[in-house]
């Protein structure tokens, strides 16, 4: 579904953020990307739907190259859901309008159909009664669940999560992870940048460990948590799992 091959990215000629990144996410697979901060994991996931440009290599989604200038990027992006660290709900729109905007303007759905779909998804993430509120009236965890519902409203073929729980208070993390676990169990193709190793253990098929812009380890979940091959991944795991 998502093919990443030999991607290099430089912020400036002397500062390379991604070095020869190659991996893939198969249909229905859940891949967790972890690593210390500054390792390039968020940059990599943003390259997948071309929110960040990259200079070398190829990324394709469902066979369509994202780095081909001829690709209709808005159309491709509309098929890939993305959830951000800081939610990025549109603060001037009500919750339900956040869910309807792209359905109507991008997919051309009729307003009542978009509303029905939006309400069903809000119900699914447990926020139906908040439909008429504005984002600022919701807690962080609720906003992030709305953001997931907003992405799902586009009927995506895959979902990208960029540190979806990093900006949340600890007591709100599980309500977001629960939604994501459900999604994973339903067979959604997911690429998730996160430090939540509990989530990785529960639903991930594979775990990718990045450090200094490189993919250091790309292993099946059990292999990764059992005995990571690289020193760096072992150190990282021992640090975040010791508490």
């Amino acid at each position: 579904m998502i093919e990443i091959s030999h991607v290099d990215k430089w912020y400036s000629p002397t500062f390379q953020v991604l070095t020869d990144c190659t991996t893939s996410v198969a249909k229905g697979e859940v891949v967790v990307v972890c690593g210390p901060s500054g390792s390039g994991k968020s940059t990599l996931i943003k390259c997948v739907n071309a929110l960040e440009p990259f200079q070398k290599g190829d990324i394709s989604i469902d066979g369509i190259k994202v780095n081909d200038p001829k690709t209709d990027l808005p159309k491709l992006r509309s098929r890939v859901g993305m959830v951000f660290q800081h939610f990025e709900l549109f603060p001037h729109l009500k919750i339900i309008d956040n869910l309807c905007l792209a359905q109507e303007k991008v997919l051309g759905r009729a307003h009542d159909k978009a509303m029905t779909k939006g309400m069903a998804l809000l119900d699914r993430v447990g926020l139906k009664e908040h439909a008429k509120k504005f984002p600022a009236q919701l807690s962080g965890g609720q906003q992030q669940r709305v953001a997931i519902a907003r992405a799902l409203a586009m009927d995506p073929i895959a979902m990208l999560f960029d540190e979806p729980t990093s900006a949340l208070d600890p007591e709100m993390i599980s309500e977001v992870l629960d939604v994501m676990v459900d999604l994973a169990r339903e067979g959604m193709t997911m690429m998730v940048v996160t430090h939540e190793m509990g989530f990785a253990r529960k639903v991930a098929n594979r775990v990718i460990f990045m450090d200094r812009g490189e993919i250091v380890e790309d292993a099946l979940k059990d292999d990764f948590f059992g005995k990571p091959r690289s020193d760096r991944a072992q150190k990282f795991l021992s640090k975040i799992l010791s508490h």
Partner: peptide, 22 residues
């Protein structure tokens, strides 16, 4: 914040739509 146009693009809105609606 730059995240707002990024979120709009990620939903498939074009540049013009991102400006107009978001």
């Amino acid at each position: 914040s730059r995240g707002q146009p990024a979120a709009a693009s990620a939903l498939g809105l074009t540049y013009a739509q991102t400006m107009r609606y978001v």
